[in-house]
């Protein structure tokens, strides 16, 4: 076989390997989602969403769980958005270029890959015990905020970096102060990217189970939380609990709850994609 033929063969082999790799991922996901929907869709109903949990699978709902998720997400957003974006702006715009900022930069990137259970233990030690917040929504939200802060910081910096320096020059040359340039030009131009990063980080937080269990999310909460210091449960913890029960009915409940959780996550990702497209089409340099 001559060389050109052999190369063409290699080309083909690589192409088909790639196709198989892509398809296997998609197929597994499709089977999983199909199975979950097949199992859970019978249980999905308005009652399931508005009912409190119960010892009896048929009467059990996810009201407290998704209310807990909403509370946790609202507080996680309130905490992580200003902190993460603020840190990103500082590191990108203000921090001097020295060893200290390099050190900070590397560590923030590393923090993004720390296992979430470690954050859970940190939250347990610092927020629950030391600061005596107990097994509260606030402690859970603070823990999740720590978890997603690095992601938000990194994506904020990337979004700011993507703003062409010519815009900065133009604003500076007109006598704008540093803050005016950031506020009037850099942030509006990078806001789509920042928002996308924040939403993707939040949609990671919404599925986290381990750190919240460590912090003390309860598996059985008979009332929806009323304030940030209340005890709570969240959808993933509820799912985790139901799946570990022996009864078939609870497994079905879990499948139905997974559909709800997936639905929320897909919607959030959809919003992220929409915002990115909307801002990108507006920002054609």
């Amino acid at each position: 076989m001559n060389n050109a033929k052999f190369n063409r063969l290699k080309d083909k082999a690589f192409k088909y390997t790639g196709i198989i790799a892509s398809i296997s991922g998609i197929v597994v996901l499709a089977i999983f989602i199909g199975f979950v929907i097949y199992m859970g869709v019978q249980r999905l109903s308005w009652d399931f969403i508005v009912q409190l949990p119960s010892r009896f699978a048929e009467e059990s709902g996810i009201y407290t769980a998704w209310m807990g998720t909403v509370w946790i997400m609202v507080f996680t957003t309130l905490i992580s958005f200003p902190l993460g974006v603020g840190a990103g702006i500082y590191l990108e715009e203000y921090a001097p270029e020295n060893r200290w900022s390099k050190f900070l930069e590397i560590n923030i990137s590393n923090l993004a890959s720390v296992p979430s259970i470690i954050y859970g233990l940190l939250g347990l030690g610092v927020f629950v015990r030391m600061m005596q917040m107990g097994n509260s929504i606030l402690a859970g939200a603070l823990t999740l905020s720590l978890l997603i802060l690095p992601i938000i910081i990194v994506s904020t910096r990337e979004a700011i970096k993507a703003v062409p320096s010519s815009i900065r020059d133009a604003s500076n040359a007109l006598g704008a102060s540093k803050w005016q340039t950031i506020w009037h030009q850099i942030l509006p131009a990078s806001f789509g990217g920042i928002l996308t990063g924040v939403i993707l980080a939040l949609s990671r937080a919404i599925g986290e189970t381990a750190p919240l269990i460590v912090v003390g999310a309860l598996v059985y909460v008979p009332f929806a939380p009323q304030n940030p210091l209340d005890e709570f449960t969240v959808l993933p913890v509820q799912i985790y609990n139901w799946v570990s029960r022996p009864q078939e009915e609870f497994i079905i409940n879990a499948a139905a709850a997974i559909i709800v959780l997936l639905g929320i996550t897909f919607i959030m990702n959809g919003i992220a994609v929409y915002l990115r497209n909307k801002w990108q089409s507006k920002m054609e340099w």
């Binding site: 062409p164 010519s166 815009i167 020059d169 133009a170 040359a173 030009q185 507006k282 054609e284």
Partner: peptide, 12 residues
């Protein structure tokens, strides 16, 4: 002291 740059750089 105003300045005009090489590449037109209007704000979006």
């Amino acid at each position: 002291v105003g300045m005009v740059f090489q590449k037109p750089n209007p704000f979006p």
